[in-house]
Structure formats: structure tokens, C-alpha cells
Design a protein around this nucleic acid. Sequence first.
DNA 1: AGGGGATTATTATGCAGCTTAATAATCACT
DNA 2: AGTGATTATTAAGCTGCATAATAATCCCCT
Lengths: 156, 156
Amino acid sequence: MPKPAPEPEVAPPRENAIASPLAESPAFLVRLAQLRAFDEFHRNFAELGVTPAGFSVFALIVANPGIRPGAIAEELRVKPSNVAVLVNGLVAAGLVRREADQAELRASLLHPTAAGSRAWREMDRTHRETDAQFAAGLTPAERSQFVTLLRKLLHR
Amino acid sequence: MPKPAPEPEVAPPRENAIASPLAESPAFLVRLAQLRAFDEFHRNFAELGVTPAGFSVFALIVANPGIRPGAIAEELRVKPSNVAVLVNGLVAAGLVRREADQAELRASLLHPTAAGSRAWREMDRTHRETDAQFAAGLTPAERSQFVTLLRKLLHR
DNA sequence: AGGGGATTATTATGCAGCTTAATAATCACT
DNA sequence: AGTGATTATTAAGCTGCATAATAATCCCCT
């Protein structure tokens, strides 16, 4: 029996392995990563009946009671019209209430309800778990580095 | 008058800045990054009439002439049914042709047409530009680090 | 005052991308 | 030959998102 075929040094597609021309593309890899993130999210939040977008809106309201829809839209890079329907969902679920702003009658101020604050604790815990699963392949140091790079990339 | 309220040590939002409870969440940041990636993509590829998904399928076909739809679906984490319609688009655009596999009559082998190979050069160039814009906030070293971390994270 | 244009929010409508289910053809195995 | 699994495509439906339309309020300027 001849000695086993030596593995090539670089880009070593096996017999019938396929070349991945996008494997070095940051944008493409980010897309793949996000698919996985949503997978993890749905697996963990299936019970809680919240979508990723709804969760992020809720998180902002809990962290900033009295925040206005426009601010949420800006922060999350979604359109104000979307925020409205997401808030509708949270209100229907009894997690959030709209309050009138006396000094700005156009605006509505968003607050978590008591039930919302209670539900948040569970969601926050679940979210931390989800993040941990998502970044499970990275050491803590790498994870922190990863976050730093993402933030730098995002801030223009 | 008592001494002024001390600013909290961490998460020091300015007067009316809003707290971003998700700013440390890898999954959330990845989502934001992907939104920006699609933005860049659409800005650059608007002329070429290709979607991100269509582009990634085309890239795989060019790099692996004769590849089968099922392999593409697996590689890109999309459903086979999606691959079929994306390939339909590429065929309609004259970039790709389907060929019968003699040894496996169920399968179809995908090849770029001559026009497809020509068009690819332009697309590849544009894609490199897009990636560069996307990662413009990072130094080359950081960018390479970023890609490494993404790949590690994705390979479980 | 009060009228015109800008701001804020919500609702309504439409569409692209994706999923699941249904259909068709072929293969592998007994 | 026949049955169940594989491969691909088509069809139908849903979700999330964007744009446009509507409504109410605010700002400012004459």
C-alpha cells in the first residue's frame, strides 16, 4: 500500500469538495453568521413568542422607559412604520403601554408594563444564553475581540 | 444643596442619549452588520441586476463548473427550492446553462455560459470593491482577524 | 393671530425572499 | 418488477420590510 496522499497546503478541496470563492468575503460570512444567529434565536425564543425585531424593540423600551418610537427606529435601523407594528404586538401581548407626552402631543412615550418588566427578566436570561451559544466556538477573549471589531466596523 | 448626583460608572449615556442594551450582543451586532452589507451590495450592484443570493449562487457555479443544485443549497444554507428559482433567473439572464448529467439523470449540472464568464469578471471586481467598502472601518490586519473569527464561529 | 411647512406617528398597501407542500423523474435495492 | 429514497423543480402561502397615504401636532413668520 502506497503512503497516503499528502494533503495540499492551502485551499485543499478533497476529491469532490467544492471551492468556496466567498469564504474570504467579510460581507458573505456576516450573512452566514446572521443566519445562524436567527436560528439560535428562534430555537431559544420559540416558547416566548417574540421575534428578533420585537425583542430588540422591547429591550430598548425596558432600558429606556419613556423612549419614543422615532428614537427606536433610528437606533435599530428600521423604518418608523415597522416600529409601530412591532409596538402594536408588544402592547397586544400586554408587555408595553403607550403614554401621551404632555409636552409633545404628537409623540407617544413607551413604557414596559409591570407584566412586561417581569417577562423581561426571563427574556434577558434567554438572550444571554442565545448569545453564548452563538459565540460558542470562540474563547472569551476572541468573543470580546469580535464584538470590538463589529462595533468599529459599524461606527462607519 | 447636596453634591450633584454622580454619573454612573458604566453605560454613561449623555443627557438624552439612549442606552443600548444590545450593544454588547454579538448576534445583534452581526444583524446590524448584515444590514449594512446588503446596503453596500445594493448600492454597488444596482446596475448589474443581481441580488445577493443570486450573486452567491453564480459565484459558486463559476468556481465549480458542473456543480449540482443540491450542493449549492447545502453550501449556502438555503433550501433547494430557492436554488432552483435563483438558477432560473441566471439562466434567463443568459449567464448559466443547465446540462444533463449522464450518470445521474435526476441531477442537472450547472455551467457558466461564455457570456456568464465574461460578466463574472465585472461582478467579481464589484464584489471586491463592495467588501472593501463594507470593511472600510477596519485596518487590513483587523479585517483579516475579523474574517478568521467569523470562520471559526461558523465552523461550529 | 393664523396659515404654511416640517415633524411625529400610525395605518395601508405592495413586494421580495423564504418555507413548506406538491409533483415529477430517476435511482438503488430486494 | 416494485417499493422506497433521492434529486430537482414548481406552486402556494407567509413574513418581514419598504414605500406611500393619512392624521395630528408643532414651529415659525408675517
